[in-house]
């Protein structure tokens, strides 16, 4: 066998591709809905926390800051292992997908809160004054004046963070969630071939490349039309 054949047989074995295609499609689907759940939870919670922080209650803000700092400091894998293998010791047993969604959702929320908050603090004071002077309440000014501007500022850093954390759904493979990587590595150990891993890589590209392209479009659209 010459080198090229060997390469193709190792990474692109057609028979193995065909055999594991159904499993891989199921894995793709799992990855997609896990990522969607993580993004929805993370962005919503992050936005709510940043808004809550703008009310300036000391105790509340301290809690938010602790949450955001811990969420950003701890490696997600550590949290995943603690929740999946540690909590059952306390009688709390959560499913693998739920652990993954909670941990990654909270981690994304921690980053998103900081990003939204940075956006909020860079909205000029005059914007708030214009809102309040026209009779809008604090919350109305927050929602209709400050947030839209903060969100625009937040979008470029946010989309990168969303992508990075969505890809971490691959960590599900260590707690038995059958997403793309778990399917690929199971197949790899059955067949002894690297081809399933190639399949997994291709699947990730198919899932996340559109997202990368979408973020480019979003970044472009939300760039300041000053």
């Amino acid at each position: 066998m010459d080198g090229l054949d060997r390469f193709l047989n190792t990474f692109f074995n057609g028979a193995i591709f065909a055999r594991y295609l159904p499993d891989m499609l199921a894995g793709v689907w799992v990855t997609i809905w896990l990522a969607a759940a993580v993004i929805a939870l993370g962005l919503t919670l992050g936005l709510l926390l940043a808004c809550l922080r703008s009310y300036g209650n000391r105790v509340v803000n301290l809690c938010i800051i602790v949450f955001a700092d811990l969420g950003r400091a701890l490696p997600p894998l550590v949290l995943i292992l603690i929740m999946y293998f540690g909590l059952p010791g306390l009688g709390v047993r959560l499913s693998g997908p739920l652990v993954l969604i909670l941990v990654l959702g909270f981690v994304l929320a921690a980053f998103a809160e900081e990003i939204f908050w940075a956006g909020l603090t860079s909205v000029a004071r005059g914007q708030w004054e214009a809102g309040r002077a026209t009779g809008l309440g604090f919350t109305q000014t927050l929602i209709h004046v400050a947030l839209p501007q903060a969100i625009r500022l937040a979008i470029p850093p946010l989309v990168n963070r969303v992508l990075a954390i969505s890809k971490m759904t691959a960590l599900g493979s260590v707690i038995g969630v059958s997403e793309i990587l778990a399917v690929a590595s199971t197949a790899q150990s059955f067949t002894g071939s690297a081809a399933p891993l190639t399949m997994g890589a291709i699947a990730y590209v198919i899932v996340f490349l559109p997202l990368v392209i979408l973020t480019r479009i979003l970044e472009h659209r939300y760039a300041w039309k000053v």
Binding site: E129, A130, G131, A133, T134, L136, P148, R152, W224, V226
Partner: peptide, 27 residues
């Protein structure tokens, strides 16, 4: 009390008519 500032402080994410409408609707 209508207030006009030295720095205008129009809402940059809304067009002119949107700027003039916001408080009418919300406040």
């Amino acid at each position: 009390l209508g207030m006009v500032f030295q720095g205008f402080h129009l809402y940059p994410h809304m067009d002119a008519v949107g700027n003039v409408m916001l408080a009418q609707v919300k406040a």
